[in-house]
């Protein structure tokens, strides 16, 4: 068991024994990651804040039901994901129902790449402008693809943990992740090809 999991279990025991300060410490530890996940899922600051509050309240009220079959962080992300999906189903059903398939782009079926993107130095890719392009590319993904990519590639959960959080199977997660990563790759690639072209046009 990971040290972080063990620490969380110790904290949970204290909370269940009536120590609210131990719960506040768990909130402090996870609020940033949960907020980011919710913000990426619902793409709205105010809604993300409401869902953040709801998620920790649900976690507190359901803590006795946390059985420790998974880690606390996986359990907490599952509550947050369910809350976000419930919100989206109720208020933006089209974003879930019609949004679940990435457009079938022939270039995704036969993938290509370009040196403009693959060889761009990391400091350029992670510059302020580069970061905003990454955010845009991720935001453009359909909800269910976006959530899987965020959980795996941003939050670093394992594939089986992601499957657990989104209540899906590992093969389904792998398939969504493959398509999500390639859609982001393609968007970024298009941007860096265009950038290279405009630089060379400007230089000539």
């Amino acid at each position: 068991m990971r040290d972080a999991d063990q620490e969380d279990r110790t904290a949970i025991k204290k909370v269940l024994a009536g120590d609210f300060g131990a719960f506040e410490a768990l909130v402090e530890k996870y609020q940033g990651r949960i907020y980011r996940h919710l913000r990426k899922m619902v793409k709205d600051n105010h809604v993300a804040e409401d869902l953040l509050q709801e998620t920790f309240l649900n976690a507190y009220r359901g803590l006795r039901k946390f059985e420790g079959g998974s880690s606390f962080s996986t359990w907490l992300f599952r509550i947050a994901t369910n809350n976000a999906l419930m919100f989206l189903r109720k208020h933006r059903p089209q974003s879930i129902e019609y949004d679940d398939e990435i457009r079938s782009d022939p270039s995704l079926a036969f993938m290509t790449s370009s040196p403009e993107f693959a060889d761009t130095p990391l400091e350029v890719l992670l510059s302020q402008e580069g970061r905003s392009k990454i955010e845009e590319a991720i935001e453009a993904l359909p909800t269910l693809y976006r959530s899987v990519l965020i959980l795996r590639d941003v939050e670093g959960f394992s594939l089986s943990e992601v499957a657990d959080i989104v209540n899906s199977s590992v093969p389904a997660v792998k398939s969504r992740l493959h398509r999500a990563r390639n859609a982001v790759r393609e968007t970024l690639m298009g941007y860096y090809i265009e950038k290279e072209l405009s630089t060379s046009r400007g230089a000539s």
Binding site: R36, K40, F117, A118, T120, L122, L125, L126, G130, R131, I134, E135, I138, L149, I150, D153, V154, G156, R181, V184, R185, L188
Partner: peptide, 11 residues
């Protein structure tokens, strides 16, 4: 590169 920038570039 895509996975790396998603990991490091999303704040």
């Amino acid at each position: 590169t895509t996975v790396e920038v998603c990991n490091k570039g999303v704040s």
